[in-house]
């Protein structure tokens, strides 16, 4: 982790950020103010995320058009006043202006063009890249670009399908201070993550039995959309029979019974189509924002490496899906003196 000199915050920063500095300290706040975040795409859940990290005081936020592979219904956004919806400014420009207004100390800009048109070192401008709902292929592509451009670019993705949500995190390598607990002193934890491609290559019959059903259900949806040339979210209940076929095929090839993923769960995912349930967006945007702040500040233990939420049972579950070779995410830890 980069050493950051503890310098005094400006009076304005100290006044506005007072309550959160009491949570994570001045040094973490300094780190946040130097962090650059790229968000690709825009959706209700990404809106929630952007709001949270702009309020927290990151250095800059760059918004970018998503890949041409998304289907989302932005029925409403709290970022754009109704009278401006018809204006000739682009949607992202409207979002950026509104976000700037939330916290003038954060630099919010819109980057024109798609990732494909950018020079190779474009991603080097960022500490974190967040991708919303998009084709699995695209997410894996951005994830691998982050990995190629250096060991410090974190990749996060989020999708809210109706009331169901999934977050994925690849920090490559991440070091953080684990707070002392009873009899255990402070220690420096070094995490080594796997890529999205590696995580979803793990064989299902080798994953822990208690792995949430939603993990498998999301993989079935991805597979269905990809093999039927659908945009993510571009599905309806009419597709149920084909999706059940996809489940059969995947479960068989992964050595698992079909009962692994209940019909009802796939039914709910299809019923959602491209919509997002606003209360769940608030929850996912909050969790993702929190993780991003942990990553940027080097304070607190980040997620390893999936998070799922289903309001049906109300659980917000973290899952650690390892590489196909079962390498666990925690690699080393060392005691340190503070």
């Amino acid at each position: 982790m980069e050493e950051v000199a503890v310098e005094a915050l400006t009076e304005q920063e100290a006044a506005v950020y007072d309550r959160q500095i009491r949570v994570w300290g001045v040094e973490a706040q300094r780190r946040l103010s130097r962090a650059h975040v790229l968000v690709i795409g825009m959706s209700n859940v990404l809106t929630e995320l952007c709001k949270n990290i702009v309020l927290a005081g990151i250095g800059s936020l760059t918004l970018m058009e998503d890949a041409p592979s998304v289907s989302t219904v932005m029925n409403t956004s709290f970022l754009i006043p109704v009278e401006q919806i018809e204006s000739d400014k682009s949607f992202l420009t409207e979002c950026a202006e509104s976000l700037k207004d939330f916290n003038p100390m954060v630099h919010v800009t819109v980057e024109k063009g798609s990732l494909e048109e950018k020079p190779d070192d474009f991603l080097n401008n960022f500490d974190v890249v967040v991708v919303g709902r998009s084709l699995l292929k695209y997410r894996m592509h951005v994830n691998s670009l982050c990995r190629k451009r250096g060991p410090k670019i974190a990749f996060l993705s989020v999708d809210c399908r109706g009331p169901l949500g999934e977050i994925f995190i690849d920090l490559q390598t991440h070091t953080y201070v684990l707070k002392a607990k009873e009899n255990v002193p402070h220690s420096l934890q070094n995490l080594v993550y796997c890529s999205l491609e590696e995580a979803i290559a793990a064989r299902w019959d080798r994953l822990p039995k208690k792995t949430t059903k939603l993990f498998y259900a999301m993989r079935i949806m991805e597979d269905f959309e990809q093999s039927n040339s659908r945009l993510p979210g571009q599905v309806t209940l009419d597709d149920l029979a084909s999706v059940l076929d996809t489940r059969k095929r995947l479960c068989e090839s992964q050595g698992m019974p079909e009962t692994l993923v209940p019909d009802k769960l796939l039914h709910r995912l299809l019923y959602a189509e491209a919509r997002e349930h606003p209360p769940v967006c608030a929850i996912l945007g909050g969790i993702l924002g929190q993780e991003l702040l942990k990553v940027l500040s080097g304070k607190g233990e980040p997620l390893k490496n999936f998070f799922f939420f289903d309001p049906m049972d109300g659980k917000g579950i973290t899952e650690e899906i390892p590489r196909p070779d079962d390498t666990p995410i925690i690699m080393q830890s060392a005691e340190i003196e503070i």
Binding site: R19, Q20, R22, V23, E48, K51, N52, L55, A56, A282, I283, G285, G286, I287, G289, Q290, L293
Partner: peptide
């Protein structure tokens, strides 16, 4: 009281 936006959103 220590307070952050993300928890309140959740």
């Amino acid at each position: 009281v220590h307070a952050i936006a993300t928890t309140n959103a959740i």
